[in-house]
Each structure stands twice: as C-alpha cells, then as structure tokens.
Simulated scan of single mutants.
Amino acid sequence: MKRIALIGECMIELNGSSFGAMQQTYGGDSLNTAVYLARIAGQSVAIDYISALGCDAISDGMIMRWQQEGINTTTVLRDKHRQPGLYLIQLDEFGERTFLYWRDQSAARYMLRHSEFERIVKHLDGVDMVYLSGISLAILPPDDRQQLIDFLTRLSKKGVSIIFDSNYRPALWEDSETTRHCYHQLFAITDLALVTNDDEAALWGDTSEEETLLRLKQTGVKQAVVKMGPKGNYYENFMMDIRTFVAATVVKNVVDTTSAGDSFNAGFIAGVIRGLSPVKCSELGHQLAGIVIQHKGAIIPASETAEINCNNDQTTTNIFNQYINKEIV
C-alpha cells in the first residue's frame, strides 16, 4: 500500500447568499483532494492530512468527519491559541465563484511553529508521496515557507515523490516575484506538477499551454498536467518526451465550480496509484470533477461519489454518463 501525505489548510466554509441563508461546512484545496482521493482510491493508498486546527468544537467536528472519510488525522496538530480560518463562497449566475477569507490567524498558518511539528517531520520520512499546493505555501509566514521547501527538498533526495499543484492566489502573496522564487525551488524537485492554464498565465505570463509545458520542463519537473477547465488537459512526461491531450466531457448542468481542480487532482493521483495510463488518469480526473461541479460546495455528499472507487474503468465511465444526463437541483 502506498502512503501519501497532503499538506495544507482546511477552513470553515460558508456557502449561500449575503445576509441570507448560509450553509456551514468546510473545505480547502489540499483537504478537498484528500477527501476525494480517499473516496475513490479505496484500500490502495493510506492518506495522511498534515495541518493544524484549534481545540474548539468545530475543529473536533472536522477531525471526526475526516476520520469517517478514511483520512489519518494523527498528523493534524491541535493549537490551543488559534482556530480554523473561515471563507465565504459567492456564486454568479454561471456557477463561477468568488471568495472572502478570514485566515490571517488560523492555526494552519502557524503549523510549522507548533511545538509538535518535529513529530510530523519524522512521520513524513515514512511516506511515498507528498502533495501540496501553492496555497499550502502562501498561507505560511515567509521564513516558514522556506523551511518547508528545504524540508521537502531533503525528502525528495530520499526518494519521496513530490506532487505540486501551483494553485496561484495573488492575494495570499506579498508579490509575484516572491511567488515565482518559491515555485522555482519547488518545481526543481517536483515529480508531478498539476497546474492550471489561467494561473500560469497570471503568474508567468504564459500565452499557451505549450509555453507552460516548456517552462516546466526547464525548471526540472519530471511530469506535468496542464488543466484547461472544460476543454480538458495536456499531460507530458519530460523524461520520455511523451505529450498527450485529453478532452473533458462537456457538463451542461454546472452548479458550482468550487473544487473542480482539487477533485481532478484526486482522480488523476488515484489513477497513478492504480497504475493507469496518463490518459486514463486524466479521464478519471475529469469524470470526478464533472460530478463535483454539479453540486454546491467544495465537498459533495459521499453518496454521490460512492461508486467511483472501482477498478473497472468502463463502470466508472457509465456512472459518469448517468450524471451528465441527469437533472440535479
């Protein structure tokens, strides 16, 4: 069994209309990926979530629900002085979202300064893969970011695979130069980069997916996926000089695109763990994301993804086709 550790922050999510009805749940890009990966990868992988929460009732509730999803939470530190961050999702008529955040003093922001973080460092010596995102880095104080990058570099030299989703959020960074400096260091040790074309254009000025792939190759990335939303994705193995494009199935009933990229990542990584081809990994990612975006919120009910944790690709495709032809309120 493979073991993967996902590093990041989970926050309280409020989803609804301003000064109207609000639904409270939770979400965060790396946690979303961890949940969907746990659901569809089944017993083929052990999943650790690396983060920090408070000692309050809401933090207790998060821990309990993650355990129910099959995620190992012994690696979630508890901070007596801080609580989880909070974000509000606002949707437009096309299902596109904007966010408001309250996270400057969240427990996860200061996880590397926790008195027990050394225990996490020792734990990570025993994993096969580490996954993190640009947000995982961005929320940390500058010195802590560099500490995390240095630690991941040491893990990479020991043979731990690094998976990095660049997930660029300008508001979380001091400036774009700082972001590029941190990303350059991470790409140099990245085995699998999962990036989005819009983010790469915003940060690097890329004008095409081909330009993004060339830049990633030059940084030292071994394999890369460039996600293009409803168009599909490119995959390239730079060591074997193999590139392919995989189209995404059109989903007409888009309700909320929150977690589309996170769930795609989960599907792709699940495929990698199962030993599927890059095309099959991409298709699994698109199928899962296609189901997720037909529901509100970052993490949809487990019942909606229950049958995807199978090894029969045709069965998975049939399940997905049922969803894209189904009216969901």
Rank of each mutant, 00 (worst) to 15 (best):
Y101C: 11
Q294H: 08
A34E: 07
L6A: 10
R113A: 15
I273A: 03
E304W: 09
S166L: 07
P301G: 07
A171W: 09
T207V: 14
I149A: 05
L194H: 01
E118M: 13
N197Y: 15
G61R: 04
K326I: 10
L148M: 08
W66R: 09
W66C: 02
Y183C: 10
T212V: 15
D199F: 01
M239L: 15
G159E: 02
Y235M: 00
A298Q: 00
R65W: 09
E174R: 15
T153I: 05
I50D: 08
Y131L: 10
V329I: 13
W66P: 05
A270R: 01
P301T: 05
R154L: 13
V130Y: 03
V160W: 00
N253L: 03
S277R: 05
I4V: 10
N15G: 10
M62A: 06
S44W: 11
Q43F: 12
Y26S: 01
F117V: 06
T305G: 04
N321T: 11
V76R: 06
G70M: 01
M22D: 04
R154P: 01
R215N: 11
Q67T: 00
D175R: 03
N167D: 11
A21Q: 14
V226L: 03
I273Q: 03
L37A: 06
A270I: 08
M129H: 14
G229N: 02
P170F: 04
S17H: 13
F187S: 02
Q147R: 15
